[in-house]
């Protein structure tokens, strides 16, 4: 049995109490949301904590509401609830799709949206037992000084593996974070490029809610979005590559705005503005579409460089970039997402 190491478990009932407990207990204290990532990492010894501050009993962290043209989703809202929410499914389907393909039904019932955004980076050299990692002399991400992915690499390249991050990036989401003061920041600013320290949040800061601008509904433009997830087993695996697409079409079905984002490459989920720009002005009802998809696929393949950090051969994942992009864009335009699984 994989035993959890001993820790102190605190159960605050308000946000202020949770924050003051984090301050009081210092960097050894970690907030605990659904536990589906943190508890596994504690069991494997790939992360450490002396104190866990459970956020389960703080009601204001859970729930989905509309407020002034934005959808506000509490950080502790379970992924299953995000995936099933009528307003998320109808107004920002890419988020519902991404949440619906995270792990398994049990893990989606336990795991939360905030927890998925703050998911630790993953690498086949770190998501192993302590025994396995010790035999190898550990690695840059924890306890060691060597990177097994990039020879002589000085910076950890463990991959962001959170499906909801690219979906929220293409939707232009902002985060509300509670530190000494409450602050709001664009989602992209949450991540840094160092896989060993991939979050820019301070140890005593709490992610409170995610705010997503709701697309305007008008007769002159329509929104189409989809999430594509490459993985061997469509039922449970982390992404080998994840792509989110959000397109705005005008009355003549021409792309007026486009945004794309990718995950499962390096420590940060990546926005792809240059690839998305290749789709602007494209008439989606004509033959121009396929040419534009091929052009965008070639651009994406140059921009995205899968490494041997997560399972699946890097060359194969690189070959799959244009394939998954094409499928995701077609799924977005036909409103048939998500694209899920091994497309072979």
């Amino acid at each position: 049995m994989l035993r959890l190491p001993p820790f102190e478990l605190l159960r605050p009932s308000s946000l202020e109490e949770a924050r003051s407990l984090l301050v009081e207990h210092g960097p050894g204290a970690r907030p605990l949301a659904g536990g589906t990532d943190l508890l596994v990492n504690l069991k494997l010894g790939s992360t450490e904590a002396q104190t866990l501050v459970s956020l389960a009993a703080i009601p204001e962290l859970c729930g989905i509401r509309e407020e002034a043209g934005e959808l506000v989703i509490g950080a502790m809202t379970p992924l299953a609830q995000v995936a099933a929410s009528e307003v998320v499914r109808s107004r920002i389907p890419v988020l519902a799709q991404a949440a619906s393909v995270v792990a398994s039904p049990q893990l989606r019932a336990m795991g939360t949206l905030g927890g998925n955004l703050l998911l630790d980076t993953r690498c086949q050299w770190i998501n192993q037992s302590h025994f396995w990692r010790a035999a190898l002399g550990f690695c840059l991400k924890k306890d060691g000084s060597k990177c097994h992915v990039v020879e002589k690499g000085k910076r950890c390249v463990a991959a962001a593996s959170n499906d909801t991050a690219p979906a929220l990036l293409v939707l232009g989401a902002r985060l509300v974070v509670l530190g000494a003061q409450e602050r709001s920041m664009p989602l992209a600013e949450l991540y840094s490029s160092d896989g060993a320290q991939h979050l820019t949040l301070a140890a005593d800061e709490l992610l409170v809610e995610v705010r997503v601008p709701l697309p305007e509904q008008s007769a002159r433009s329509t929104q189409h979005s989809a999430y594509g997830k490459l993985r061997r087993r469509a039922s449970i695996d982390f992404p080998l590559l994840g792509l989110a697409a959000n397109l705005e079409l005008d009355e003549s079905k021409t792309v007026r705005a486009a945004s794309l984002a990718a995950v499962a490459l390096s420590a940060q989920p990546l926005s792809l503005p240059k690839v998305a720009a290749a789709l602007l002005g494209v008439e989606t009802s004509g033959a121009q579409l396929e040419r534009a998809i091929v052009a965008a696929g070639a651009l994406a393949q140059r921009r995205l460089k899968p490494l041997d950090n997560i399972p699946g051969d890097a060359w194969w994942r690189r070959e799959m970039v244009p394939v998954l992009l094409g499928r995701t864009l077609r799924a977005a335009l036909s409103d048939t997402g998500p694209v899920n699984g091994d497309p072979q």
């Binding site: 478990l9 159960r11 536990g35 589906t36 508890l39 596994v40 459970s54 049990q106 893990l107 336990m110």
Partner: peptide
């Protein structure tokens, strides 16, 4: 359905 292996009994 949830997974008992990743659920803290105290919670």
């Amino acid at each position: 359905p949830v997974l008992a292996c990743l659920t803290l009994a105290a919670l």
